[in-house]
């Protein structure tokens, strides 16, 4: 990837960081309700993988920590924020919320709240791709703790058995809420757990965009070429609590400091500065521009948008006027 391209990615990653931080504020201001899970610290994972894939063409599915994956898949950030603000203009028309961002036009197949739920859905999307005969792949991003669900094993088995074009990306941030991985999981290295299903896998530093991009390029190529599923484990860290209701009191300060020193934005920024592609001032300007954009466009749009009409509360439960409900009679 050329440095100029990386500069674009850095800007997108910075946008994602500021977007999430603004969500935090909006939550405190009570413009966002419910559960809110933020992504700061983990940006290189989504960006490295999706830069190596074809967002909008490939299908993406993930958990509740889903805003950034949707935006990188092509969702309009204004409509993602509007969803968080529970507005009719939100990607899911205000019916989904933070944990249920959907943007099917961009092949972002949703954020799901049940830990491990998307594993089989991703395999199924891959089955659909296989039946249609296209060259798309399905990319499923989930956390480390999700791998202790039965769906992990059930889905890996079926994906391998039926040679499905699915890339499982494990964002290993070392915690499932407040439980550290070594207290919940017998095998710490997640990429080793898939060998029982004959699925090729790799582990990579999830803080370094370049490394993620390289590892993901290999993974995507494998899956797209028809060789079946692949599992990519990315070692990362979230800089905030699990969700807004999390005290975040369970992590050692030393550990947090160590990971703050490995901020994916800073790593990429410094590399570009060193290469002469970027100056500190340019980066600052970029940041100011992004902050303005978020305030003037994203937040304004979400604030000014209408809420869904209460009269439509029963819409979207079942298909409307489906003729087969009446036995095919129109």
């Amino acid at each position: 990837m050329k440095n100029a391209e990386k500069k674009r990615v850095l800007r997108e990653m910075l946008f994602a960081r500021r977007f999430e931080e603004r969500c935090y504020e909006a939550y405190v201001e009570r413009n966002i309700g419910g559960f809110l899970h933020l992504y700061p610290g983990e940006e290189a994972c989504a960006f490295g993988v999706l830069e190596a894939a074809q967002p909008g063409h490939d299908y993406v599915i993930t958990s509740y920590r889903d805003h950034v994956h949707a935006i990188k898949s092509g969702s309009d950030p204004r409509r993602v924020m509007a969803e968080l603000f529970a507005k009719e203009t939100g990607v899911s028309k205000g019916r989904g919320g933070s944990m249920h961002i959907f943007d099917v036009a961009n092949r972002f197949m949703g954020g799901y709240a049940l830990v491990g739920g998307p594993f089989p859905l991703a395999a199924g999307i891959a089955k659909g791709i296989q039946m249609q005969g296209g060259d798309e792949i399905c990319i499923c991003f989930l956390g480390d703790a999700a791998n202790n669900q039965g769906t992990f094993h059930e889905s890996l088995n079926m994906a391998a058995l039926w040679n499905l074009p699915v890339l499982y990306v494990c964002e290993n941030n070392l915690y499932g809420i407040g439980t550290r991985i070594d207290r919940s999981t017998a095998v710490i290295d997640q990429y080793k757990r898939v060998s029982g299903y004959n699925i090729p896998s790799a582990q990579e530093d999830g803080q370094d965009f370049d490394l993620v991009y390289k590892a993901a390029s290999k993974a995507v190529k494998h899956v797209r070429s028809g060789k079946g599923p692949y599992f990519l484990e990315l070692m990362t860290y979230r800089y905030r609590g699990h969700s807004m209701s999390d005290s975040n009191a369970y992590r050692a300060k030393k550990e947090e400091r160590m990971w703050s020193g490995r901020d994916p934005l800073i790593i990429l920024r410094d590399r570009l500065i060193e290469a002469g592609e970027l100056t500190k001032e340019e980066f600052k300007d970029m940041d100011t521009e992004i902050l303005d954009e978020i305030e003037d466009e994203v937040i304004r749009f979400a604030t000014d948008s209408p809420e869904p009409p209460v009269s439509e509360v029963e819409q979207f439960v079942l298909a409307e006027n489906d003729p087969w409900v009446r036995g095919g009679v129109k």
């Binding site: 197949m109 089989p120 991703a122 395999a123 199924g124 999307i125 089955k127 659909g128 039946m131 769906t151």
Partner: peptide, 13 residues
Amino acid sequence: NGYTGLGIGASFL
């Protein structure tokens, strides 16, 4: 749960 979820995911397409 796995194959039911797989069928559901396939039905999305």
